Amino acid sequence: MGFVEAVKTCYGPKYARFSGRAARSEYWYFMLSHVLVLLCWLGLAVALFLPALDRVLPQFFDVAVSLAMLAIFIVTILKGTEGRNRFGPDPLATRAREEIFA
């Protein structure tokens, strides 16, 4: 089974059918098609992201914001670890709020 035939088979008569068997070539060609699609999407994302980054960074530098300050800003908007850690209970957990603000 060739590449095109495997992809047509998987998206055609065998679409969402979870019974039966598949040839090894059918499986690997289908997986290859997914990898190729993923690489295309990744390439498109990079192609769109780099020009945007190229325009944004000079704007940060124009207002005297360094890359370190930009990194600190990014860290502040990231979600913290869930549950208790070495700094104390999770402030977003319901029970922890009662402990912190009691």
Score class of each variant (00 low, 15 high):
17 R>P: 00
40 C>V: 15
29 Y>I: 02
39 L>A: 15
50 L>F: 08
100 I>Y: 06
95 R>N: 12
1 M>E: 06
97 R>D: 03
56 V>F: 14
83 G>Y: 00
19 S>Y: 12
72 I>P: 00
38 L>A: 15
70 L>A: 06
80 G>K: 13
58 P>D: 10
15 Y>R: 11
80 G>R: 15
67 L>S: 10
3 F>V: 01
55 R>C: 01
102 A>H: 09
10 C>A: 13
67 L>H: 10
93 A>H: 14
9 T>Y: 08
42 L>N: 10
15 Y>T: 02
57 L>K: 09
13 P>G: 13
68 A>V: 11
15 Y>L: 12
18 F>V: 07
66 S>H: 08
70 L>C: 09
9 T>G: 04
18 F>Q: 10
35 V>N: 11
81 T>A: 12
14 K>D: 01
58 P>K: 02
93 A>V: 02
54 D>E: 11
24 R>W: 12
60 F>A: 14
9 T>F: 11
61 F>L: 14
55 R>K: 14
53 L>N: 08
25 S>K: 05
18 F>R: 13
89 P>F: 01
6 A>F: 00
39 L>H: 10
73 F>H: 04
67 L>Q: 11
3 F>I: 06
68 A>K: 09
7 V>H: 01
87 F>D: 11
95 R>E: 15
100 I>K: 04
21 R>F: 05
75 V>F: 00
15 Y>W: 07
91 P>R: 01
22 A>K: 12
50 L>D: 03
4 V>D: 14
102 A>I: 06
37 V>L: 15
101 F>G: 02
5 E>K: 08
4 V>W: 07
99 E>S: 11
100 I>N: 06
36 L>D: 03
81 T>Y: 10
15 Y>M: 12
83 G>T: 04
36 L>W: 07
51 P>I: 02
